[in-house]
């Protein structure tokens, strides 16, 4: 999938890539040309990505080649052991959870997974969890607490699944209980919005001591499509809605909802996932280091105060 605004950039990117390969094979004559093109590429990227409007970022956040939770798990963690099931109804594959090593430290990792191929996307329900997904997340978070492990969550979902079974099995209750559980977790926690942070289904995995967000990720109370349909009564007003909702990382940092923006490589994460993972790893290390210096009581109090003070109102 190639987005409209990244077409030119990608063409140039591929050219540079080709030249680089030729250069590396020993063709030193191309050096001058390569440098020139690289400069041009950088300039173009800066130009292009500076003027991205919120809707462009929505498209980037949903980009099919954007790295997902399992990609980051593979690139950042070692020895991932996935745990399955909610011990009640089933295993929801739109949420993955388990233990892994972060550097030399065992941690719990939990995240939405949208899937790559069409078949996998179907199996993972496009990253839209049912209640059993949240109950699995709660279960693994509780285990992490038992084993004194920090918890790292990845957020990437269009939202909790709107379906008959989901409602029958208590989607509301599962999300609410997840908010409560992650709110009162006795171990340090870091949440990363890597792609799409869609409403309550996203927040259910995003109540943490530190909340990070990738530069081109989005995080919103409702999808721009949903908002346009309800408030504008016109599905085509998605651009207006995405602007009004203030859903970009830059907006959210200003509103105090997130702690750090994780920069993406030029051209966004899907152009260079390895680099993206390396930057994220740096931020995770920094956050965990900050949190490990605190005791349980401080961890808990800090998180409660953080979310307890969210909101803007007038007090007379």
């Amino acid at each position: 999938m190639v987005l409209e605004f990244e077409k030119d950039y990608l063409e140039l990117y591929q050219k540079v890539d080709q030249l680089k390969r030729i250069y590396k094979l020993g063709n030193k004559e191309k050096e001058e040309e390569l440098r020139k093109l690289q400069r041009e590429l950088r300039k173009k990227a800066k130009e292009l990505y500076r003027k991205l409007d919120p809707w462009d970022r929505v498209l980037l956040a949903r980009h099919s080649q954007r790295p997902h939770t399992l990609d980051y798990i593979n690139m950042i963690f070692r020895n991932f052991i996935e745990l399955h099931g909610d011990r009640c109804f089933g295993d929801d594959r739109s949420i993955v959870a388990g233990f892994a090593y972060f550097e030399s430290m065992p941690v719990a990792v939990i995240g939405h997974e949208k899937g790559k191929s069409t078949k996998e996307k179907m199996e993972r329900n496009f990253g839209m969890p049912h209640p059993e997904g949240y109950r699995k997340a709660i279960r693994v978070a509780k285990l992490a607490e038992k084993y004194h492990m920090p918890v790292i969550t990845f957020v990437d979902t269009p939202g909790a699944y709107p379906g008959i079974g989901a409602e029958e099995r208590g989607q509301s209750e599962a999300i609410a209980e997840s908010l409560y559980t992650f709110g009162y977790l006795k171990v340090p926690s870091v949440a990363v919005v890597i792609g799409e942070g869609g409403s309550g289904g996203a927040l259910a995995l995003a109540v943490a001591n530190r909340v990070l967000m990738f530069e081109n990720a989005i995080y919103s109370v409702i999808s721009p499509e949903g908002c346009a349909a309800i408030l504008w009564k016109d599905q085509s007003k998605v651009k207006e809605a995405s602007l009004a909702l203030k859903l970009t990382a830059q907006d959210l940092l200003r509103l105090g909802v997130i702690d750090y923006i994780v920069p993406e490589p030029l051209g966004a994460s899907h152009i260079d996932p390895v680099r993206s993972a390396r930057v994220l790893k740096y931020f995770l290390r920094k956050c965990i280091k900050q949190l490990l210096s605190k005791n349980t009581e401080e961890i808990l109090r800090e998180r409660i105060e953080k979310f307890g003070s969210m909101g803007v109102f007038l007090e007379q």
Partner: peptide, 22 residues
């Protein structure tokens, strides 16, 4: 549900009220 006109801040009230129940 959440009040769309307050964007992400209204979403955060879900976390805040759940912590309140705690």
């Amino acid at each position: 549900g959440a009040r769309m006109q307050e964007g992400i801040l209204s979403l955060m009230q879900m976390a805040k009220t759940s912590i309140g129940v705690g």
